[in-house]
């Protein structure tokens, strides 16, 4: 084990983990208030990436640098976040609310989400083409500094920085604001929260929007890191969902930890066993952890612990 290589793999692991953490929050939030897996969240992520792709293909930035780059990245976050939030909002209205009104069984929600996920994936493929496309360069992705010989790039800094900002913001939002209190109340006991004057429908809708906002931004970051395709949501989506479960689904801080753990595990297993085994070890870790802690690292529910 070479110490330099250790850092070489740790840093991408952390930046990937930060992304997973941000996506996992979307899963965990929805699970918290609705107790169901939002299978279509991976498509929210994909839509965010496509929104950024569309905007920057239209703008065609030429060799941006300095302030221009900062502005473009901010624009990217705004656009993809909005697109993600909009998609999640529409998703809730179309694929979840009608079922909720009819008191459908839980598995029906799962299937409806799967259907919506299929639909969004393939309509994106149809609309925007099925070949991967890169987002145009928004900044010079140069080395910023080195930690023990491992290079840290601008993009990695942005990824980790944005993730940290989003996570802190979300934590404050959920724990300190009135809206957050509503979310926690619905997560704990929706019926009672409704009796106490919480508008359950609004809370659920807003929860989806918050999750979608984070998911869309994560999609933008992921698109910068690699390329944008219609199926891009699938693997990060599953892994982030695994991360949410690993941390204890419904638990926001758990999702952050779970995401980080899975990102780092993936990166290290790519180093130790080869790139093709990265997902195998991520899922193996998940199964092992769940065998010994059946409710994840930090344990259950939004309302009770976070």
């Amino acid at each position: 084990m070479n110490l330099n290589e250790f850092w070489d793999y740790l840093i991408p692991g952390i930046s990937l983990g930060a992304l997973y953490a941000v996506i996992a929050i979307g899963y965990t939030l929805v699970y918290g208030v609705l107790q169901l897996i939002n299978f279509a969240h991976s498509e929210v992520f994909m839509v965010g990436a496509f929104a950024a792709l569309l905007v920057f293909t239209k703008i065609e930035p030429s060799n941006p640098s300095g302030l221009m780059s900062v502005g473009l990245v901010a624009l990217g976050f705004a656009v993809s976040g909005l697109a993600g939030a909009g998609t999640a909002f529409a998703l809730e209205k179309v694929a979840y609310k009608p079922l909720r009104v009819r008191n459908a069984p839980r598995l029906a929600f799962l299937i409806s989400a799967i259907g919506a996920s299929f639909f969004l994936t393939h309509i994106a493929g149809k609309l925007f083409g099925r070949d991967p496309k890169p987002i145009p360069d928004l900044f010079v992705n140069k080395k910023v500094f080195e930690i023990f010989g491992a290079r840290v790039s601008v993009l990695q800094l942005i990824m980790v920085g944005a993730a940290i900002v989003m996570m802190i913001g979300l934590d404050l939002l959920v724990n300190r604001t009135k809206m957050g209190m509503g979310i926690r109340a619905v997560a704990q006991d929706a019926e009672t929260a409704g009796l106490m004057g919480v508008d359950i429908n609004k809370v659920i809708s807003r929860t989806f929007v918050i999750g979608g906002l984070l998911g869309g931004c994560a999609g933008f970051l992921f698109g910068l890191n690699s390329q944008v395709t219609y199926t891009m949501g699938f693997f990060p989506g599953i892994t982030a969902f695994a991360a949410a479960v690993l941390g204890g689904i419904g638990n926001i801080r758990g999702a952050m930890i779970g995401g980080m753990v899975l990102g780092i595990v993936e990166s290290f297993s790519a180093w130790q066993f080869g790139d093709e085994w990265r997902y195998v070890s991520a899922f193996a870790v998940l199964i092992l952890v769940l065998m010994f802690r059946p409710t994840g690292i930090l344990g259950e529910r939004l309302g009770r612990t976070a």
Partner: peptide, 23 residues
């Protein structure tokens, strides 16, 4: 329809079915 679009329709049918006949 175009062969590549089939899953789009499948997805839409799943959603519609679950809305109107979740059982």
């Amino acid at each position: 329809v175009d062969e590549q679009d089939r899953h789009m329709y499948l997805g839409a049918i799943l959603v519609i079915m679950m809305i109107f006949r979740p059982q």
